[in-house]
Design a protein around this nucleic acid. Structure first.
Lengths: 402, 402
DNA sequence: CAATAGTAAATCTACTTTCCTATTACGCGA
DNA sequence: TCGCGTAATAGGAAAGTAGATTTACTATTG
């Protein structure tokens, strides 16, 4: 219930924040458009823009033309005001991917450099690894090494802010307690870490199947199962960062011969076993599913139908508990199954439950985790930038939101 | 990302809102305390309080004494500024309760009148029923009938704001589409409806086992199963108000002889069947559980252990997907089982999963749904009151939060 | 008599309104 | 087609206003 109180200083800070937020959201705006959008007067808008420009946060990127009168100056956020380093850390024991994929982007969202690192540049020392990646990408982008403002990590595990540790991660060196604050101290930047599935959901919201949806849930079907619950304004993370660990959901009382939990019903190994039982011989579950999705045989249809039945169970768990307006199927298996699998899942879902949650497959083909880390890092940097404007000039004790 | 912009009018509005919010949160405050808490100067604090007092929102409730100097005036929210009518609507087909229980409370939270209605005063016409209850309670409280500001309904079903209808409700007349807006129009007050389990969770947070917890999940074990997910600032409601309908969670692929979903594993009928199989003869599941919890026999121990195994499955579903810092067991069955059942559930939970979510039983003995409806209605009225102060004097176009 | 509550007067910050100038596109006549 | 007047717009300057703060003062109480 707490509300902010303050004096004219606060007002100015709020108006600067509002202006900056609009520039970030809309990209480019003229003074006149800003005046309209903020409701502020012409002199105030000018004054605020002057301040932002002098602080290096906004720049003039061009002029209008065409209409009568002088050409209005077009303002935009200064892309160089912040640089985000996004790194996707992967457990390579079960995939063929590189263990690290990274990208550098500016405040405007433009990708300045991007690379995959097939081997660990510092061999088990995360601080060294990050330093090496940062140095390499900055060099490629022609940037001074100290220009990075924020590091955003995508990790196969959950980040527990309480201990500063990334849990359930199998990459050497990355599981140690306090790693995230340690990185922040060593590099002198803000550091955030998030679960890979959560980041895939963020990418899906920004540029995938969930664009425009108020909230949604992302069901990750890969070697492991995962679920990201997007609440619209933020993701559900849980008390210890463990929300969405849907593989642990039990299937009733332990009974011999029955799958014990959702992981053993619909996880990668279960999918592979199901595929093998239907005569598919791919090296990975997703390969089998891709083969079946392309094939026109009864075996393929049977395999996909059986798989859809299982996925529908997972879907029903999420739909019953969270009731999202949309569920997006993602991960290697869902991607391999494509729209054909989606339709079978929808059908099985409707056949077995009274729920009617819409289902989609991911619209992303690129590395969703890296994209999500960029999107999430950008959001974080932008928000802290806008909020720092608001926090700066307040002298006395001030109420902040509860 | 949108941030508010404005001029001095907004500042004044914000300072009034902040002051009012503090009065609501802290109860009684002197000018000096308000000055400290808001960070505003003495004259501004005085001016704001004068405005609030003249608007009838704040009143002087006393004076300090003891220290040197003049006695400071003690301010508080004017309790008469708003009156909340809370009604708990129940499906009586499965219980012995009255179908309607209602309470009237003022802005300060004091209960002005409260009553149970063993029969429907308007027999299937919700508008008439509410009008009759409102009239009766106002008369008991010695209040004019038009003083009610807000109506908060607790219903056994889910409220879908999209259609204005309460879904899955079995009380005659209460399921029709558009009922909530209809009530609002007929009574001239704001109306909100919420699921009974959600309201029980709100009561649990305000005065029960979850007081002080940042967020938590409430597991409702009664005739039906339910789950409320408190995110700290709000409850998870879902796209159609159906979040937490945990009874629908399937237990794997349909298999003959196996319970199909959590409802058939741990719902009221399943508990009753389990109790009967262990030789208990109570009329309701909660009666059997209460008998067993009191008994010292091997049959009782077996029954409770078997029940705890089942509840632990439900618990694991919630814990794996949501990872709350606390789960509170509530509802008739949990209440009947008490701490003994809680301990057995915790043990079964630890035995069967790697999760370690803390578990508690409800600390409420009174009608949790009615209390929750009061708490929720109060919160709603208070927030709209504070926000209306903020919204009032703004003339031009103004940015609101996204 | 010392400390505190509350008010009054003067000052300051930041926003708005009003007015002014410079710039551009367009139309019209030569 | 060129040149000039006109309308419309961008941006800034000056004056005025709302609301907050600081400082000083009065009244009250132990």
């Amino acid at each position: 219930m707490a509300r902010l109180a303050g004096s004219s200083k606060l007002l100015r800070a709020m108006n600067e924040s509002a202006t900056m937020a609009l520039l970030i959201d809309r990209g480019t705006l003229t003074r006149g458009e800003l005046r309209e959008l903020t409701g502020l007067s012409k002199p105030t808008t000018s004054d605020v823009l002057r301040t932002l420009t002098e602080a290096g946060l906004a720049i003039v990127v061009g002029h209008t033309s065409g209409g009568p009168g002088p050409n209005a100056e077009v303002y935009a956020v200064n892309p160089a005001a912040a640089t985000v380093l996004a790194i996707s850390v992967r457990d390579v024991s079960e995939t063929l991917h590189a263990p690290f994929e990274a990208a550098l982007c500016d405040l405007g969202g433009a990708v300045l450099a991007r690379a995959a690192y097939p081997s660990d540049p510092a061999d088990g020392d995360p601080v060294g690894t990050v330093r090496a990646i940062a140095g390499d990408l900055c060099a490629r982008a022609g940037l001074a090494g100290d220009r990075v403002t924020h590091l955003h990590l995508g990790v196969p595990g959950s980040y527990d802010p309480g201990t500063g540790a990334i849990r359930h991660i199998d990459v050497t060196g990355w599981g140690r307690p306090g790693l995230v604050p340690e990185l922040a101290a060593a590099l002198g930047v803000t550091v955030e870490a998030d679960n890979d599935v959560n980041l895939a959901a963020i990418a899906e919201r920004h540029r995938g199947a969930a664009a425009g949806s108020g909230s949604f849930a992302l069901l990750w079907l890969g070697a492991g199962l995962g679920c990201a619950i997007d609440l619209g304004t933020s993701l559900l993370r849980g008390a210890t960062g463990g929300a969405g660990e849907i593989g642990y959901v039990p299937l009733g009382l332990a009974a011999p011969g029955q799958p014990r939990d959702l992981q053993s019903l619909a996880g990668g190994p279960a999918v592979a076993a199901l595929g093998a039982a239907h005569g598919f011989t791919g090296a990975t579950p997703e390969e089998m599913v891709a083969d079946a999705a392309r094939a026109d045989s009864p075996a393929a249809a049977d395999f996909l139908a059986a798989l859809a039945d299982r996925i529908a169970v997972v879907l029903a768990v999420v739909a019953a508990l969270v009731d999202p307006p949309l569920v997006v199927l993602a991960g290697e298996v869902a991607q391999a199954g494509g729209p054909r699998l989606r339709d079978l899942v929808t059908e099985a879902f409707h056949r077995n439950t009274p729920l009617r949650t819409p289902v989609e497959v991911t619209a992303l083909t690129d590395d969703a985790v890296l994209l999500g880390a960029m999107d999430s890092g950008l959001r974080s940097v932008r928000e802290s930038l806008v909020d720092s404007l608001n926090a700066r000039p307040i002298p006395g004790p001030v109420l902040r939101s509860a």
